[in-house]
Design a protein around this nucleic acid. Structure first.
Lengths: 119, 119
DNA sequence: CACGTATATGCCAGTTAGGGTATATTAGAA
DNA sequence: TTCTAATATACCCTAACTGGCATATACGTG
């Protein structure tokens, strides 16, 4: 289990990563927020640590875990080769998504001007 | 094995997807390019098809496989929550990566102008 | 030191995915 | 229809991952 892809294949690990995306957390905090048995949390954290997704620092008896960027970049990098492809299909999706977006304007880059059928 | 993440966890499947990123391919073409036994190709293609990563059309006895965008977007979407985080670290990596990039200029967005020490 | 909290690790069991090989299916050609 | 090419499927086997539980380790406190 070496590639970043296999690491994020596990749902609980993705959940942990999502938690850490907000801010660093101790094992116990993760345990409580995800309602996951502690040994399980520790084991997944080990996998995440050994694959470079997270790092930890000591705080008394606690260990504080936080994200590390590299593996994410690796995934993103692989994904890049498909961006060109799926963005060709976005036009169709765009209209659909525009209806849902309205709340999170993100970057305003995809907002081209699809005739704006709703003024 | 349902989530898009588990699908792309498999290296051979990622290889197939990368192949298809260029253009659609028949099973035999994939088989030859990846030097993979034909039943293996078919099995992986089945998984990719059932998870929505690819679709196929019939061409005589051949089946032509091509990508479908949705699952990629799903992955990209999950990744999005970490972008803010890792882009804070990019500055440090940028210099390092620029040395390797030189061959694949991709978008010319990260190519800022890091003093170019080697003309 | 004894004790409690926080975290890590070891061991076991169940499951499942992936590879290999043989075989079935589908479609075109002779 | 028979033969051949292209692709799909079935079956078996092994390896590996995940979860659960018990226990070990680390650290602070009284």
């Amino acid at each position: 289990m070496d590639s970043a892809f296999e690491i994020i294949a596990e749902p609980n690990r993705r959940a942990i990563l999502s938690l850490l995306a907000t801010s660093q957390q101790s094992v116990g905090e993760i345990e409580r927020q995800l309602r996951m048995p502690q040994p399980m949390v520790s084991k997944h954290l080990r996998v995440l640590r050994e694959s470079g997704f997270v790092e930890s620092t000591v705080d008394a008896q606690r260990r504080l875990y936080r994200l590390k960027p590299e593996p994410f970049k690796e995934v993103d990098n692989w994904l890049a080769q498909f961006r060109r492809f799926w963005s060709a299909h976005v036009d169709a999706l765009e209209r659909h998504l525009d209806r849902m977006n309205k709340s999170t304007p993100t970057k305003g880059k995809t907002t081209k001007k699809t005739t704006q059928p709703k003024p």
